[in-house]
Simulated scan of single mutants.
Amino acid sequence: MMLKFRLFANFREKAGRKEIALDVKGGTVMDAIKALIAAYPGLEPLMLQEGMLKPYVNVLVNGRKAGPMDRVNEGDELAIFPPVSGG
C-alpha cells in the first residue's frame, strides 16, 4: 500500500527529504517505520532502539497520535517528529 511520510527536524535532515511516498507491506505503524528505515537506513539509530520505536519518536497518522501497533491504510499520511520543546 502507498503511504506518505512527512519528516521533521533531525529526521528530515538525515533523510534529506521533507516528504516521502513509499509502498509499504504490512498494516501497522511499525511496518511503515521499518519500510521507511529500509529506504533511508540513516534513520534507524534516530528512531529505533533494540528494534523498537524509541519512546520520544512521535507519530501522527492523518493528524492523530498513533502507536507502533496502530493500523495504517492505503493513502494514509504519517507525520514523524522528535520531541518538541520551547519556551
Rank of each mutant, 00 (worst) to 15 (best):
M1D: 04
M1C: 06
M2Y: 06
K4L: 03
R6C: 00
R6H: 06
R6S: 03
L7Q: 10
L7C: 12
N10M: 08
F11E: 04
F11K: 13
F11R: 12
R12Q: 14
E13F: 01
E13N: 14
K14C: 08
A15W: 00
G16C: 07
K18G: 10
K18I: 01
K18V: 03
I20P: 06
I20Y: 04
A21P: 00
A21H: 13
D23V: 05
V24P: 01
V24N: 06
K25N: 12
G26N: 13
V29G: 10
M30P: 00
A32H: 02
A32N: 05
K34C: 11
K34D: 15
A39N: 10
A39L: 02
L43M: 07
P45D: 12
P45V: 02
L46S: 07
M47C: 05
E50V: 04
G51C: 02
K54T: 00
P55D: 08
P55H: 06
Y56K: 07
Y56F: 15
V57W: 02
N58F: 02
L60A: 08
L60M: 11
N62A: 13
N62R: 08
K65S: 14
A66Q: 00
G67E: 14
P68G: 10
M69H: 15
E74Q: 13
D76A: 12
D76E: 10
D76S: 11
E77G: 02
E77Y: 02
L78Q: 00
F81T: 08
S85L: 08
G87D: 12
G87A: 10
